[in-house]
Design a protein around this nucleic acid. Sequence first.
DNA 1: ATGCCAAGCGCC
DNA 2: AGGGCGCTTGGCAT
Length: 558
Amino acid sequence: MPHSGLPSVVAAHRQTESMRIVLDRRPQGVAVIDESGVETLVGERDLAEFVLRREAEHPRWVWTDTAQWYPELLAAGVRVERCHDLRLVDALLSARAGRAPRRDWGGPRAAARADVLFEVEPDEPPAERPDPVQLLAEQRDEIAALPQSRDMTVLAAAESAGALAAAEMRHCGLPWSPVAHNALLTEALGARPAPGKRPERLQQLADEVERLLGIGPVPIDSAPELVKALRRAGLDVSSTRSWELEKLDHPAIAPLLEYRSLYRLFTANGWNWLDEWVHDGRFRPVYVPGGVVTGRWATDGGGALQLPKQVRSAVVADEGWMLVVADAAQLEPRILAALSGDEAMARASAGVDLYAGIVASGAVSSREHAKVGMLGAMYGGTTGESARVLPRLARAFPRAISFVEEAARAGERGETVSTRLGRTSPKPPASWRERQSAAAREGATEADVRAARSDARSWGRFTRNFVVQGTAAEWALTWIAGVRQRLWDARLGPLEHQPHLVMFVHDELVVHCPTEYVAMAAAAMRDAAAEAARVVFGGTDVTFPVTVAAVDRYSDAK
DNA sequence: ATGCCAAGCGCC
DNA sequence: AGGGCGCTTGGCAT
């Protein structure tokens, strides 16, 4: 029975929801006991902010913001199986309805209010903290009224599951060996220099560039100054981008490019990064689910989604554990094949190598052509090899190619597009529309027309890519949710002691896993991938193979 | 001193 | 005149 001394807000929620979950006060906090007797412990102060809701067979926690609440629960040893993230779902629904997302999520980290800070009269009455029960009902109603309510329900669940996974990945951390990292840095750069000094290897390369250019001091770290210096040395360059430098035939170029590469390692993922981001043998980046308009995750600090291959040998499993690394092979072209219902491309997708399948279909003559052609079709490439093979792909896979072409035309007209599950692209900015109407007006200059056309094409490339990248993100979220659920269902113990997700990069997942459970984790990753295709597309002939490798070091996976 | 932006390059 | 990002640095403006 519920204890009579519970905080009143919890009691209120309990009554509203008529939960059949028992809340019991303990010395450490509030225990939540569900009908199967599973018990979790929650800090009393925190619990007051939550609504627990019994849904069908499975409890789903409903809260304003997973990123705000879940880390504290994890720190207290509480895991949440399912949730409904009101903020993320609001973002989905608001984008679809073309309205601004609501911002007043309240909570302890809400923006400071001027009237509270300075003890002045408020400009307007303080906003009511949103009532989760009320918000949930509103979101449910809005979803139910959509023509594709099933899809949006799936997307809301997948987005929310992703938010749980993101918090758990940060909580557990990616196993990282500072010793291995320091060793690879020392091998590449020399010993760690004093603050403000260059590592030995960088100094050697800088000296060599200076000597070979033969024009005196070279400001190697300043791009504008370096361009001037290279021009003084007789090299015709307009920038110092690596692909422009690579075209030059001069002995100083090779050491300059090597300097650049090592300089980047030193500044972006060197000793300072290691000090800041790796503690107790774990790298804990902040993932931001839904941080990209297409639905991809972003990161806030740490750069986990841009981890250079150069440093992946520092990702080392714990003793007695392994890293199970799974990668969805050619995810985006497969997504396009499934989205468009292109049967010829579905046949080409049968093997593990889609591009080889395209070659086998006779559409193009080499794997490289298949790859650059498909990437060009999805990104809107109009030049070079990609443009040359596009007509051949369009003949062989008419539905796939016309699908992205139509998404591009819609964007050029200023319309929005949607992913398979209904994530909607933003409307072009007001400045975009103004330029379009300026070009359509009487007396528009040729420059107006050119600018408007260029803008339109550019937005068309965005919407073209949005449908593919965004649907790929949906597949990946569904994949994560499926893997996570399977690992959960195994109920092997506390999160950190059983196989758990530690890394996600768009189409790649890593599970840190006790050696005896590697086969189970690998199967979970494969099964969840097959399930994701069914859930997102509701049945498709396109296959989504994942390559799975169990390794000690991340760098050994590929 | 602080803020903003472009350049450049890392990832998918 | 190929989509989406984050991060660091230098350089300019305030």
